[in-house]
Design a protein around this nucleic acid. Sequence first.
DNA 1: ACCGTTTCCGTACGTCATACGGTATTGTTT
DNA 2: AAACAATACCGTATGACGTACGGAAACGGT
Lengths: 251, 251
Amino acid sequence: MAAERSGGGDPVRTLALLWRTPQEPKPVGRKPKVSVDQIVTAAIAVADREGLGAMSMARVAQELTVGTMSLYTHVPGKAELIDLMADAVLQERELTPEGTWRERIKHYADRTRAVYQAHPWMRDVSMVRPPLGPGLMDGQEFVLAALADSGLEPRQVTVAHVAVEGFVHGAAASEVDDQQLAATTGESGDSWWGARQVFWDEYFDVERYPAMTALWNAGAYDTEGTLAQNMHHSWNYGLDRLLDGIEGGMR
Amino acid sequence: MAAERSGGGDPVRTLALLWRTPQEPKPVGRKPKVSVDQIVTAAIAVADREGLGAMSMARVAQELTVGTMSLYTHVPGKAELIDLMADAVLQERELTPEGTWRERIKHYADRTRAVYQAHPWMRDVSMVRPPLGPGLMDGQEFVLAALADSGLEPRQVTVAHVAVEGFVHGAAASEVDDQQLAATTGESGDSWWGARQVFWDEYFDVERYPAMTALWNAGAYDTEGTLAQNMHHSWNYGLDRLLDGIEGGMR
DNA sequence: ACCGTTTCCGTACGTCATACGGTATTGTTT
DNA sequence: AAACAATACCGTATGACGTACGGAAACGGT
């Protein structure tokens, strides 16, 4: 189906959940069997193991040995639950502000990448209308503080911020996509490409694709590393070049 | 649901469809009411209008005034249909190899961005196990040819290729995400952010977020343009800086 | 009129999110 | 001890989804 969507409901309710606004314990009434934290934790566990597509309300309830509809007492709906999950994993980053602005950006990128590695379903969570919780906000502050220290003009900081955020989330997402597919479909990336050997045998046209052919013949694709290692290398390369460019643009 | 997934079925059948391997017309038997091309076109139309989540087999069949199960005569399943849709829209790029390698990369980025603008559901299509059809392959060739002309070593060309492709698709996807959400949820980005004014009133903490506060006070967010215009500006900025970095890294 | 071939499609199954309304459990009050 | 208001739990039902299965319909050639 379409992309996993987050947060369409009542903003006041959702924000209270994201920031865990403490509410005085109810003096009367039945005791809850589950808490919001337990639901979010269980949902993350299911998504980590089986992907966001498998993270159904029924599946999470089953994990907690609770009726499906009981979840709706604590969480408005699935969209809001995804918001809570996303902000929760973003909080795992533990960003420590040390070093030059460049080192801090790299640190941020590494920590964010680690989140995606641990929770590949983040690929499916849109970040254009993000969950305005502590996990997201702390990350934004961290990057903006680093860029502000770089010497860029305030207006330029906001422009560069969007570019850096976009690169980090985008690269982390695509790097992790393969794992997610391997987990949900049960087929590894290597196996998938192997099954498509037919393509090179039957459809690839050396005359139509001279540049690719030349690179192949030049040994550009003779790499000893795994697919994942190559992607990680390109990821670091791309971020370094982007930061080079930002640095160079200031002079 | 989870992210839109493509292409898990029989590779031979899928490749034949992607490249429209011509098959001699059947001399006998009932005449088909629909063709593969019609199905793909109708599916794209539905996804353009209502998002990939609304692009169900039943919905596409309805569009063609045909029974749902009739589609399965022509297309193995939904995943393969998405592959066909993606490759079809990538073919719309019409890449013309003119100018310096940098101009060609920019051209490629612009054309790809245009595809995402016209078909926001591309955000939900994974590109790590891509449809190996002409639309994708022609794009790859175009970028590789440009980078090969840049003077980079063959091995470096492949590394830079992944970085550029990642940036272009990632940036185009996030830029378009907002439109897609506006289309599927019926709520515009401005309206969404407006409804979350509460956040700034109730939860934003100036002491926790000094860098953001300082930037705000410095007028960094006083922009006259729309959200979409700002994103587009950052997108161009990021790509230029990335290309700056690639260029500088050669010396 | 019949036959082999190909396509069309109605039905059925299991899964999904969640609206609704009833039931179970609690602390407090009588 | 009995009654209560409040709160949480959850069974059932609805409509939509992908697609497996198998039969009906339409065609060219006899």
